[in-house]
Structures are given as C-alpha cells and as structure tokens.
Design a protein around this nucleic acid. Structure first.
Lengths: 337, 337
DNA sequence: TTGTAAGCGTTATCAG
DNA sequence: CTGATAACGCTTACAA
C-alpha cells in the first residue's frame, strides 16, 4: 500500500506563517479572514496541494455532505436517467453522491441504508425496493433524511415523490378508445410495485368506466425480454387485443418487436401500443412509442431542494409528499393523435 | 436541520460495561476480543442501533474505503452497464462507490478528482475524459490509486485498462469482405477519443491492406442521433457504401434506423452494419447488430482486483497496463456469418 | 484479553 | 481579525 500522505492544514499554516485556524477559516465560506491572510494561505495551499479533509470536516460539523443513492438495476434506461439527474443536481448543490447497488432481495436495501449510516450520509434517496420499517426509523432517529421515489410507503418522515400513475393510465385508456380500439390489454411485470400496480388499476378502472374489459397479463421483471414473452402470450389469444398499455417502455419495446417480427403485426394500424417512462429508446424510429414521460429533472429537483432545506419546518408535522404529473408524449404507436 | 445524533462507541461501551476499545475491537475484523465481550458489545450495539462511524475510522486508518467513479454521460447504455459492474464488484470487495458526473469540459474531470481527494478516496476510476497531468500527479503523490478505463494515456502510475480496438476493427473488415462487401465506410463521432480513433485507424488500415478504400465520416458525439445524421450523409453519396462499421452501437442503431426508415434499405441484404460495445439494444429484434462486446465484467474485475491489492509490488516499476479482448458477437446485420 | 491514552485533521469557542 | 484549546469518534500502541 503506497502509504497515503495528504497535506494537512497544519503544514499549510506553517508554510503561510499563520495559525491552523486561519487555514480553516480560509476554506470556510463566510468566515472572517483578512484578505492578506487569505491570500497567503491560498498560496501556500496551492503550492503544497492542500485539500480540506472532508472526513474530518464531516466529523466535526456532523454533516458529511454525502447523499446516498440506493438503486437496483442501474443499467436500465429509466434508472440511469434518473441517476444522472440526481447526481448532477446534487453536485450543483454542493453535495456528493454515494451509489449503492441493490439486488431484489429485501435485505439488500437495509444493508445499503446501514452503509449510508456508517458514512454518516446526510440523506439517502431510495429509488428501488423498500426498506424495513425499523431501518427507516433508525435513519430518521439519527437525523438522516430519507427520500422515497415512486415507492408508495406511508410511514411519516421520509419525503415521498410519486407520479400520478393511476390517473395517467386513465388518460391512455380514453386515447385508445378514441383511436377506435375495443379489445384492451395491459402488459405488466410480476414485480408488483405500487407504481406498476397503480398503472394497472387505473387502466382497468378507466376502461371499466367506459364499459370495457381489459386483459391483464403479468410476467417477469420490467425488461425487454419480458415484453416479448407477454406479446407471445397475448397475441396468440383467440381474441387478439387491438391495444396494449405496457407498464414500462422497456416492456413496450419488447412487445412491439415481438408483435412486428414474430407476428407480422403492423403498429399502429393493427395494434396500438403505449408505454410509460419515456426512455430514450421510445423516441427511436423503430419504436416511436407514445408514452408517459417520467419528469426525472423535476423529481431530482424536488428531492435536492428538500435535502438542501436547512430548517425542516416541523410546524408542518404533516408528512411531506409530492405528486408529479407524467406528461403524455404523443408519438406514432397509437392511431389518430 | 434535525440535528443528527448518532450513537457512539462510548455509549455502547457504557451500556455493555466494557471499555471503548473493546467496542472498537469487536468491529475490527481480526482483533482479539473474548467471545463473552464480543457478545455483550454486539448486544448493546444492536439495542442502541450503533454503526461504526466510517468518517472517523477513515480518519484514523488513513483509508476511507471510498472509491470515486468519474464518468460523463452516465445514462448511456454502455456507461451505465460498466457503472453497474463496477459498483457491484466494489461493494463485494468491501468498498463503496462515490459517483461524480462530469461534463465534456476538461476542467470537470480535474474538479472531480479534487473532490475525490477531499473525501480521501482510496482510489479513483476514470471512465470519461482525461485529467490534467498535474492533477494525476497530485493524486498519485497523495497515494491515491488511479484507474483509467479506455483512455490512452501513457503517464506511469495509474492502472490502464484498454481494449484491442485496433485489432478488433481489423477483424470486422475481413468479415465485411467475406460477406462480399466492396464499398466500406466508417461512421465515427467527432469526440476523437483514443479508443474511437483506434477503431477507425484499425479499420482503415485493415481495409487498405486488402486493397480497399474506406469512406470515413465523423459527426457529433457517439449517440443515436449522430448515427442518423451520419447515415444521411453517407447514404446520399453517389457511391453508396455497402458496409459500414460504426464506432459505437448507439451510432449503429441510429444509422440502421435511418437506413431502413428513411432510405428503405434492407439490412443485411443491401447494407452490412457492425457496431462496438454490445449494448443491450444491440440484441433487440429491431437491430440484431453484429458487434464487439465490451468485457465490462472483466474490466470491473481487473480494476477492483488491482485496487484490492494491499501491496503494490513496486518491484514491477513497469507501468501496469491491461489489454482486454473485445469478442465479436455475431448477429444478423452482416450477411453470411 | 483488556483498559488507558495518544493522536488522526477538522471546526467551534473564546480570549485577546 | 487572530491564535490557543477543546472537542468530534475512532483506532492503536502500550501497559497491565
């Protein structure tokens, strides 16, 4: 191990001929230092290659500047887009992101949260899975803030950012109907997360209110392959659907590919398709998918804004909760438009 | 700010009726504690919800356990895949990833590296851009390890992991020839990174050695849209190419989509296409792209392995450098096969 | 095996 | 505005 030897404030102080505190103050925004002292400190720091030790600073200030991002399937288009937004905006507000990858097991989110506690993260943002109640309590008790994105959990404390999944799904149902579709279907995954189920229920309910049934199939996770499987199942039915709402864009891409290449179905002529997320691929010429856009930038902005609030107005003892609207992006996978 | 109040080893020690050091030792693998003491400490820790403060531990041990991942365009398929692999394997080896997003400006990598220094990261992995020589020197001088992935830089010190871009490109040229293609083209971005240029040069050189010219176009970054633009430029030439090697899969997807949907060209019948990276979309039915697979798992493994080495055998004063082979994944975008 | 005590690099407090 | 001095929570000789 090439022993790490970092420059400390002590050495900078010696070189600049000032006290340690002067150095500290120079690097503390808003502290009172004379221009002359600051200049000399800065000069010495530059020459020596000094950088404030945030481990020590965090220890003292009781504030690490670290925000922990807890997420599974980072490589997925929607997740990575959200991750990008989050890290970028976090950086802009002077924080730094620690990334923890979870798998689908329940315990893995708990483990991630524990890691966040060990590093004394100022906050954790959970994009996947749901932690055990006892762990979230532990975080909150320790004064760590928690943000839950698209995870319907109703314990008080964490900031919850959700979309209007249910209502969105209703809007797409009427769009299908307007396009003349009569045999509706919903392609879902088995994951059964609240947002996914919200879309399913919203779609089914809206269809019912217009007097229509919906064929629902669930399979696998929310990926491309699952979409293909769902297409195989649904398109071999005696009553083939003429409109399908896929719970995610990835499912929709798989569904469309199978429909076209395995069944020779023309979209949107013979089959209308809609998705959810508005991943980049949805706009590719091979798909031109009509879908709901996850407002990733707004989600990140809301999260970071809340994390940057110095005072949590506990006057508002009511649970903070934000509901964002997913805008319908109209492309070419539904007739009419 | 809901004041953070974390449990300290002191409190655990009091509760367990032992000394602070006993607590510390209990959480230090390999330290000598009696079973009885350990049991009592663990019990007290559990009850109190104690977690070792890694900020303080890092301060003492002079080893934070943090590895900084420096990357731009996280939301891009190849990048996010590599990111997933890296974070996962880092976690498995007991480290934690700090993610820093850079833009394309040169200074942004430097800033990222400075952040890594502030948090006393044990190492930094650079996936995008290239830091200024003075900054890398600073990192190395401080004992921070550096890994450069696919960035050809020849300063000694950092571990460099690269692919055989040049040779791969040669292999695809012969594949095109074998498929009966005679008018070769290379679609590149303007980014001009060493790996991209290596592919270009390797392709051109191999073609030349077989007595063929290559039409080269460069445009934009390595994304889907750039691929479409490149297709528009190349497919409107009087001598339309019958084989195109795209520097990345994303470019290839854009290229294929434009070729098919705007020019009505059939792939691979009228045009053979190859890409590089083997992103997930390359395997989608709409593309079935023949491409070179970035060995992301091996890349991550090599990086993590090197970072976990306790002793850097300086006996080998020679610069560490790893060359990995990109395997050709044969799909359906080239005739024959 | 255990406890005591020193020290890691900061920042906050308090005189001057 | 500046400089001592005391924390912060931890690890690690050193001594018992």
């Amino acid at each position: 191990m090439s022993s790490k030897i970092f420059i400390s404030a002590r050495e900078v102080a010696d070189r600049a001929g000032v006290s340690r505190s002067a150095v500290s103050r120079t690097f503390t925004p808003g502290a009172s230092v004379s221009d002359e002292t600051r200049r000399r400190v800065l000069e010495a720091a530059e020459e020596l290659g000094y950088h404030v030790n945030h481990l020590a600073r965090g220890l003292m200030r009781n504030e690490s500047g670290i925000v922990c991002l807890i997420v599974s399937d980072v490589a997925t288009p929607y997740r990575s887009a959200l991750l990008r937004e989050l890290t970028l905006q976090l950086q802009n507000s002077g924080k730094v992101a620690m990334l923890i990858n979870t798998d689908r097991s329940d315990g893995s989110v708990d483990r991630a949260l524990r890691q966040a506690i060990r590093y004394r993260a100022d906050a954790s943002v959970i994009l996947s899975g749901l932690p055990d109640k006892s762990i979230t309590q532990l975080c909150l008790r320790n004064g760590q803030r928690l943000v839950l994105i698209n995870r319907d959990d109703d314990q008080p404390g964490p900031l919850r950012i959700n979309l209007d999944d249910y209502e969105s799904a209703g809007r797409i149902a009427t769009a299908f109907l307007r396009a003349g579709c009569r045999r509706l279907a919903f392609a879902n995954s088995e994951a059964g997360t609240p947002s996914l189920m919200g879309r399913e229920r919203g779609f089914v309910a809206a269809a019912a209110s217009m007097g229509m049934d919906v064929v629902v199939e669930r399979h696998g996770q929310t990926g491309y392959e699952a979409g293909k499987v769902l297409a195989q199942r649904m398109l071999t039915r005696s009553e083939r659907p003429d409109a399908v709402f896929c719970a995610t864009d990835l499912l929709a891409c798989g569904f469309m590919d199978a429909a076209r290449h395995q069944f020779g179905i023309s979209i949107p002529n013979q089959l209308c398709v809609a998705g959810f997320d508005d991943i980049e691929q949805a706009s590719w010429s091979s798909y031109e998918l009509t879908t709901f856009a996850q407002p990733v930038a707004s989600i990140a902005a809301k999260a970071v804004e809340w994390l940057s609030m110095t005072q949590l107005e506990d006057s508002a003892a009511e649970v903070p909760s934000i509901r964002l609207r997913a805008e319908l992006v109209w492309r070419n996978s539904i007739r009419g438009g």
